[in-house]
Nucleic acid binder design. Structure first.
Lengths: 237, 237
DNA sequence: ATCGCCATAATGTATAGACATTAGTTCAGG
DNA sequence: CCTGAACTAATGTCTATACATTATGGCGAT
């Protein structure tokens, strides 16, 4: 291990954040404490913390200290993080309708499930997102219970799984796949649209470090939604 | 301007890169030269250069110096950079068919055109992307001639505008909008698909610094294409 | 109670130096 | 001509210190 010291410190803190030892909002040690713990100069720990800050993992506030960043509203990432937020920003009332909820073991024969949870347990959730009681999207979701055990106790009559995860589980990597499909059969019925309506099919997987967290497939009703993404140099600001 | 010194240095260099004064591959001044020029300590210029390095704008090599990074294949961004690359990766033959090409002044009444080129001249290009002579996507594109004057001379019978731009003009900011639409009329005919086929409508704008470069709207044929995006922490390394 | 002021604890910036590491360059010896 | 060893110029890391900045928590006066 001949990694630079500031890098080792950075990783140590990052690991604690990703493992959940340091939950979102937690205050992390001051630079003084860290420099005492590692027996190094302040600039060294400062460098580690600055790197975490520009990576968006922590927020630093003068006088107050450094805090684990709340799972960001996916700052510059694709903009459909949370349908609830989007709907309410339009001034509509949001509602999540839970259709099914099951716990079962991951099927090793399914690549998606195996990649997500190995042979561990999965929570499968199906539901519909509504805006002003009009269906907007149907959602089929798998969550690895090994990665997010607390989710067993959550009541998804009150909050959608996406919103809950966004607020409670920071992710570090995500993959998103978007395609256009024609809504058919049951899905079309649930969206209250004629069969053949062009819809966006969004499939997303998220990880925290090496552990899979969730897999979602959403079918977004017709022309009700755009996906928007902006990219730019990571502005430290 | 009470910006920190390292930030001012950073911006100065960044501006030179974006303006093209420092072209890709150019070597930039050594830390010693920069600290002499700004009358500051080495750590200060080092901080500026490190920030540029983690932002991917420059590469730093010991003994050799710091160099402007070559226009990266904007790695972690949405993956439809170049349809030609994608098509050939599937082992199909790619062809771009040019339909129209006109030069005209931007219409100040059109928000898109005004934002792109103010009142300057625009190059408008319409064309179709083919894979093995099957139409894949129709494309409607506007390019600001003020931002990219060299493009007047390019023959788009040989290369698609997207591929040419990707290889010649580094962009710094992009916005992308994706929706599902049903192909109708002329567009459906050009894609050789029945009317009503679900297609992906992708609209993209790119900037270099504050200057608009191009606006594109592509209609991607049915289920032929997925858009894939991966996101993760900006790993320095 | 509420408002405003102030001390203070934390981060932010910067300096001047030291030594480590790496990779071009040069030059000697085959 | 080629190879490898030594040199050296550049970045990479780290220390110790100083002062700047700022939000917060407490205290005092309204």
């Amino acid at each position: 291990m001949s990694l630079p010291l500031h890098e080792r410190i950075r990783r140590e803190i990052e690991a604690d954040i990703l493992a959940g030892t340091l939950p979102p909002g937690a205050r992390l040690p001051t630079e003084l404490e860290l420099m005492a713990r590692h027996g190094c100069a302040r600039m060294t720990v400062s460098k580690a913390l600055s790197a975490l800050a520009t990576a968006g993992l922590v927020d630093r506030r003068k006088r107050a200290g450094s805090f684990v960043a709340r799972p960001k509203v996916h700052s510059m990432v694709l903009d459909i993080p949370d349908l609830a937020v989007e709907v309410e920003r339009r001034g509509q009332r949001y509602r999540y309708e839970l259709l099914h909820r099951t716990v079962r073991a991951a099927d090793p024969a399914s690549p998606v499930e195996a990649a997500l949870a190995g042979t561990g347990e999965l929570l499968r959730i199906e539901g519909v997102h509504h805006a002003d009681d009009r269906p907007l999207a149907v959602e089929d979701r798998l969550i690895s219970l090994a990665a997010v055990p607390e989710i067993r106790a959550v009541d998804f009559g009150l909050i959608s799984p996406g919103a809950w995860l966004l607020g409670h589980v920071p992710w570090t990597e995500a993959e998103l796949r978007v395609a256009a499909v024609a809504a058919e059969g049951e899905a079309a019925a649930r969206l209250d649209r004629p069969a053949g309506t062009a819809c966006l099919a969004v499939e997303r997987r998220t990880w925290r470090g090496a552990d899979g967290i969730t897999w979602v497939r959403q079918l977004l009703s017709g022309s009700d939604f755009d996906l928007v993404a902006s990219f730019g140099p990571t502005r430290a600001g």
